[in-house]
């Protein structure tokens, strides 16, 4: 770590805090970790969701098959969408703990090096 990060309380001249964060290893890891969760999760839920109208629309006979007394596949599949959404949401909250840890570490390092974390870059806001 010591070779990667400059000595504490030393802001490198001409370098903004944005540049500094961009070159941190933790930041790359954070972006990567987010991608690794969000991309597959998004693809999965979009496919799973659109499977419902596609099957209901184009395979009505299959979807109308009764599996539990009067209850058919179509209804159970629709109901499963709710649980799918909840499971992904809770899995995301779990995965996001790691994101928060990286984030806190990045802000910590920045502070130690003497970059201020006050709000700025307001132009355009």
């Amino acid at each position: 770590m010591a070779t990667l990060n400059p000595a504490p309380n030393k802001v490198q001249p001409g370098k903004t805090k944005w540049d500094r964060v961009q070159e941190m290893d933790e930041f790359r890891l954070l972006i990567l970790a987010k991608k690794e969760f969000v991309l597959p999760a998004t693809v999965f839920f979009v496919v799973y969701y659109f499977l419902l109208p596609v099957l209901v629309g184009y395979a009505p006979a299959l979807m109308s098959r009764k599996v539990w007394g009067p209850v058919n596949i179509a209804y159970l599949f629709a109901l499963s969408q709710f649980f799918m959404a909840w499971i992904i949401a809770f899995a995301y909250v779990g995965a996001a703990r790691k994101f928060d840890k990286y984030g806190a570490h990045i802000l910590d390092t920045l502070k130690k090096e003497g970059y201020d974390d006050r709000q700025d870059g307001k132009e355009g806001l």
Partner: peptide, 18 residues
């Protein structure tokens, strides 16, 4: 260039409104 800033902001909350 501002994308790099936005990327840092969006992912770390650095400089966000308190």
């Amino acid at each position: 260039q501002r994308f790099e800033e936005l990327e840092v902001r969006a992912n770390t909350g650095l400089g966000s409104e308190k």
